[in-house]
Nucleic acid binder design. Structure first.
Lengths: 246, 246
DNA sequence: AAGTGGTCTAGACCACTCA
DNA sequence: GAGTGGTCTAGACCACTTA
């Protein structure tokens, strides 16, 4: 009996998923520890671990080494790239996912500004090797959710507020506009992938959890790429949105 | 000696990653089998498996049960949502990733058309419970890379070519236009996440490999949502792109 | 100090592919 | 049938958190 085509670790993952999906499940209390689950389901510890690894990849639990496995409570952040364009008119109040609409406290975790050589791909896009690099991390509720690195040709940035940590009201784009190089068109290129070891450390996620990588090119009126930004977002933390006309 | 903060399975993954990254590595020949690697590195089979699981999540290898582990050779497909708008002018020839520009053979793997009840979220968006569902799978090189499910209010689709498997020249949108319901504005909402068991089976990927879920709402001139499509893309197979103005 | 998750071993047996 | 990956066991020891 027990048809059991499904591996044990998947069956256990299914049960745990169901258990924590209840709204009554207290997110401040850990799940039963691995050893207890191992006894309850009468399987080896390794099998329980595989089940938990699955839930972890799905973003349903946070694992704290030495402490326990906790239900993850997280409302994703809505990143609306084209908000200024049309979101209020077309998309408002019609969200598919239960996401916060940008009003959540997104804070700057760290910021480093330096002159450097651009990575070859970025250099190709910008048509410049020497660049100003603005490298930063964003936090929500003290949790890192996004890495962003911007590249601007050094000749453009030199002597402007762009090279200061605080680039002033309106930020980098406002300064570019003042220099007659206002970005008017943007292209965002996106991949869903697994994080590099470096990104895992900075975002404090495991190798199994997906991230979205967004590379944004900002074009001036003369179709010159004036700024390139590479962003890496914790996949579970964000919902991204774009609007466009046919 | 042997500082070795790095777990063995990561070190082995690093070595294998390096080995297959060589352009000379023959993608038609499998890597050395697990048992051989286990001997070579003097570790248990489980440790080798963990290393290979990592490469698999990164999309670097394809594992064929009973056959072996193969280097994955795959150029991602460029999905340019706003191509008609501006890609030729602004983005052309300036790609960050080495992607095929849509000319690759993307074929229909399966297509099912039926009338049904809409999932509650879709019903909310459409303002209709009874819908025509167009459910399809797309292949590239005989490999499933995308699942797409479209929902159109039943009252709109009934009696038009939309309810036929072949919806005619220009497809569904052309038929909607003929009915005076041309989609003119689109909102695409995107998440990077892990696939559900069903999606894993259909896309033939494992739970660790990320997918991108895109929900597209098509608006008519009167700001009515006339069509909702949910797409699930193999994250490693696609590069997505959007363009917009400030 | 006690309890948690993280890594690892040395096996066993099953499911699948391929010549 | 020989060889491959997939699941699983019953341990051991280490790293980290909490009190």
């Amino acid at each position: 009996m027990g048809e059991s085509r499904e591996p044990k670790y998947r069956a256990i993952a299914d049960e745990l998923r169901l258990a924590i999906s209840s709204p009554e499940f207290d997110p401040d209390k850990p799940l039963d520890p691995e050893r207890a689950l191992s006894k309850r389901y009468d399987v080896s510890a390794a099998t329980v671990r595989k089940a938990i690894a699955l839930l972890r990849a799905e973003g349903l639990v946070d694992v704290r080494h030495g402490s326990g496995v906790y239900k993850r409570t997280w409302k994703p952040i809505l990143r609306d790239a084209t908000k200024r364009l049309s979101a209020e008119q077309w998309g408002a109040g019609r969200a598919i996912w239960d996401a916060d609409v940008g009003d959540r406290l997104v804070t700057l975790g760290s910021l480093e500004v330096r002159y450097d050589r651009a990575p070859s791909r970025v250099a190709d896009l910008l048509g410049a090797e020497d660049v100003l690099v603005r490298d930063r991390t964003y936090l929500v509720d003290y949790r890192p959710v996004q890495l962003a690195v911007s590249y601007i040709p050094a000749e453009v940035a030199r002597g402007t507020a762009i090279e200061r940590r605080d680039s002033g009201p309106g930020g980098t784009f406002a300064r570019l506009a003042e220099a007659g190089l206002a970005p008017v068109e943007f292209t965002e290129t996106v991949r869903a992938r697994t994080p590099s070891p470096d990104e895992q450390a900075k975002l404090r996620i495991t190798a199994e959890r997906p991230v979205a990588e967004i590379v944004r090119c900002a074009f001036t009126q003369t179709k010159r790429i004036i700024e390139v930004t590479s962003m890496v977002l914790d996949g579970e933390a964000y919902v991204m949105q774009w609007s466009f006309t046919s």
